[in-house]
């Protein structure tokens, strides 16, 4: 049966929706945060994994989106979804702008540039405390007035699914091919007729928009925003999640976010030891299984329904990064 994995995913999603109310409040919170990271990880994988634009400013866009939506709702009393859309729109434009400004930069230069951008954004949010309440945290109007977390779960789920579908369509289209061409060799891509500049800007704009979506949802869910959400620590966690899962595919990036967030909660008893542990896992993943730990599992999963021989050839056709191949 071809496409078995799609049916399995649909079944799991349906089960998750039906049985969501059985989850304890605590684990529902974990699930919501995992989905928040899922949106961020997949959009960062679109930028860093597909297009090869290793931006360290992704969380900055999440914080800009969050603050924009929160402040607009606070000042003008507009409905929260409109505020979120405004945050997303602003970050699409800003992201495109950053993408345009750093068109000439590659690799580490781009990383340093976006790191500078993200730190400046964080410093401004922390310092202009008469507007943003600084490190004390800005109180944000919550999306629902109920204390139950269930509606947030459904909203997070819907946002994640819609984001993944949109990004999935993008990376499976010609655009995705162009992005990967840019990642592998910009000059060769350009010589083959890929409008490198346009697609680099587009990748930045799209990814930043999704980051803003996640950030604004986070603000309206938690009810408080601090500048640290755009800081290096959050960015590092995002990199850990995406790289451990596998940064070159959207599902593995999301899977990485889910697994790491889940493990962070399960290992809560180990307190401070969790972060260095994930640091080591990240280093080992990068050193020995650069495609990510979930990528082989995902590839098997995708070929579940196919006859054995077909699956074997399909597996061989997948470009491998392993030097042994």
């Amino acid at each position: 049966m071809r496409g078995l994995h799609i049916y399995i995913l649909l079944a799991v999603a349906a089960l998750a929706l039906v049985f969501a109310d059985r989850l304890s409040s605590y684990w529902m919170h974990v699930a919501i945060i995992a989905m928040f990271y899922g949106i961020l990880a997949s959009s960062w994988s679109l930028l860093a994994g597909y297009a090869g634009l290793f931006s360290l400013g992704h969380m900055a866009f999440a914080s800009i989106g969050g603050y924009t939506s929160a402040l607009l709702v606070q000042w003008y009393g507009i409905p929260i979804p409109v505020g979120m859309v405004a945050g997303v729109a602003l970050c699409c434009v800003l992201g495109g702008l950053i993408g345009w400004v750093c068109l000439r930069m590659t690799g580490p230069y781009l990383a340093i540039f976006t790191l500078g951008f993200s730190e400046i954004v964080r410093i401004i949010f922390a310092t202009e405390d008469d507007i943003t309440a600084g490190m004390a945290g800005l109180h944000v109007e919550r999306l629902f007035s109920t204390t139950s977390r269930l509606p947030y779960f459904y909203v997070a789920f819907a946002l994640l699914v819609v984001s993944l579908l949109l990004m999935g369509v993008i990376v499976r289209s010609r655009w995705g091919l162009f992005l990967r061409a840019i990642r592998e060799d910009e000059q060769a891509a350009s010589a083959s007729g890929v409008a490198v500049a346009r697609f680099r800007i587009l990748a930045f704009a799209i990814a930043s928009g999704f980051a803003a979506l996640a950030g604004s949802f986070y603000g309206h869910y938690i009810g408080i925003l601090t500048p640290s959400i755009g800081g290096l620590d959050f960015m590092a966690v995002l990199v850990v999640m995406t790289v451990i899962g596998g940064m070159e595919r959207l599902p593995t990036a999301v899977g990485g976010a889910f697994v790491v967030e889940f493990l962070l909660e399960v290992l809560r008893g180990y307190g401070q030891w969790r972060l260095p542990l994930f640091g080591i896992i990240l280093l080992l993943t990068m050193r020995f299984a650069r495609n990510g730990l979930l990528t082989p599992l995902w590839l098997r999963f995708v070929q579940l329904g196919e006859p054995r021989a077909v699956a074997a050839t399909a597996l061989r056709d997948v470009p491998q990064k392993d030097p042994a191949q």
Binding site: L56, L282, R287
Partner: peptide, 28 residues
Amino acid sequence: SDATERKDEYGLIITFGLAFFLRNIAVI
């Protein structure tokens, strides 16, 4: 090694991860 693709990206992530590890192990 010539077998490693996109060395920029490798160097970036590995040193970024090392920084994350060292900073957090130092806290402990």
